[in-house]
């Protein structure tokens, strides 16, 4: 195609402006990573003497911090690193599995749960509670609730009456995220303590999986569509079970958007600080709380021991690099028509 001369000229100046702006913005984005990178190879003196920008020119790089991070008694770093990887991977896997199952159910099986069934569940739970915690003040409360439930069921019948439709369930899921996490921390802490899961990888895995499930469900839904495809129906006719249709037919067909959601969930989990800091401060510590603990612990000493800064930088680089790789993969999937152009 031939463009008129003036438009080519215009596009040239336009392009220069665009690329200049992009370059500046990239610099802003990349600089912090660069800064952590070079700080991690600076010696004590170079940090103390003020800003130094170029290795070999401004200062003589040293691998002392990296050696320290990898070899010396930095068990905590390795611990945090491993914990982060295990917790984020396992919880992402769990979130994706249950998220996919939930979306499959909501879009394919059209569960319509009678409110009376919900009431029956309430009845069961309250009876269970009465048996479990025989507290003086509680039983009559539960008894009133139980009676109301029985009345409701008697009025409605088991399978008739108003239904809990999929879109209500989906809204309920997202509504559970309206509460700020800070309100969940106390009950979570108490439950963790009661079950003996406090400060374990398993606790974080379960909590993250639960916390990210609504997001996963909402993000996965577009890829699942609103009804079964004919390929699924063919498998169903041939006798395949719903789980095998989901995992061997449907998920392979939508693996790109599903993986993109998975990577997103992974990043959410691996960077989570608040819940991790409160629920797993010790042997199950993950990278974000560990980094923060390093900073606050050492703030007072930093002026005296600037090389701690380079240790910290090395740790940050170590944490960010795999995430960067993940993000680039994610970007490839997002750019690859998976999520946007289905």
């Amino acid at each position: 195609m031939v463009q008129p001369a003036h438009s080519r000229l215009k596009s040239l100046t336009g392009r220069i402006a665009t690329y200049t702006a992009l370059l500046i913005w990239s610099g802003v984005c990349v600089f912090p990573i660069y800064w952590f990178g070079i700080t991690s190879i600076k010696g004590f003196n170079d940090i103390a003497k003020g800003p130094r920008y170029l290795p070999f020119v401004d200062f003589q790089p040293t691998l002392a911090s990296w050696r320290f991070v990898f070899t010396d008694h930095q068990d905590n770093l390795r611990l945090g690193y491993m914990n982060s990887i295990i917790v984020a991977s396992a919880s992402t896997l769990l979130t994706l599995t249950f998220g996919a199952m939930a979306v499959y159910g909501l879009t394919r099986l059209r569960p319509t749960i009678p409110w009376s069934a919900v009431a029956l569940l309430g009845l069961g739970l309250s009876l269970g509670a009465i048996i479990l915690f025989e507290r003086a003040a509680w039983p009559w409360c539960f008894a009133v609730f139980a009676l109301a439930s029985i009345f409701f069921i008697a009025m409605r019948g088991w399978a008739r009456g108003p239904m809990l439709e999929p879109h209500l369930i989906a809204f309920g899921l997202i509504a559970s995220r309206i509460l700020p996490p800070v309100t969940m921390i106390a009950p979570l802490y108490v439950m963790a303590e009661m079950t003996g899961l406090l400060d374990t990888q398993l606790l974080l895995i379960l909590v993250y999986a639960a916390a990210n499930l609504p997001a996963a469900i909402w993000l996965l839904q577009p890829a699942f569509g609103t009804r079964a495809t004919e390929a699924e129906e063919a498998a169903y006719l041939d006798g395949a079970s719903h789980p095998s249709i989901l995992f061997t037919i449907l998920l392979p067909m939508i693996r790109q958007p599903a993986l993109a959601v998975g990577l997103l969930i992974f990043l959410l989990s691996v960077n989570e600080y608040f819940l991790a800091a409160h629920l797993a401060p010790g042997k199950a510590i993950t990278m974000p709380p560990w980094l923060v603990s390093q900073i606050s612990m050492r703030e007072a000493q930093i002026i005296a021991e600037e090389d701690e800064l380079s240790h910290l930088s090395a740790a940050i680089v170590l944490m960010v690099l795999p995430l960067l790789a993940f993000s680039i993969t994610l970007q490839r999937f997002l750019g690859n028509r998976a999520l946007w152009q289905r």
Partner: peptide, 27 residues
């Protein structure tokens, strides 16, 4: 019953042989 769908309804990630053999594999 077995059915041929108007849109073929093949499994895109399975080979022709795996597609054809699927009803037997399920059984």
């Amino acid at each position: 019953i077995s059915m041929v769908f108007q849109s073929y309804a093949l499994y895109p990630h399975k080979t022709v042989a795996e597609n054809i053999g699927f009803p037997l594999k399920v059984r």
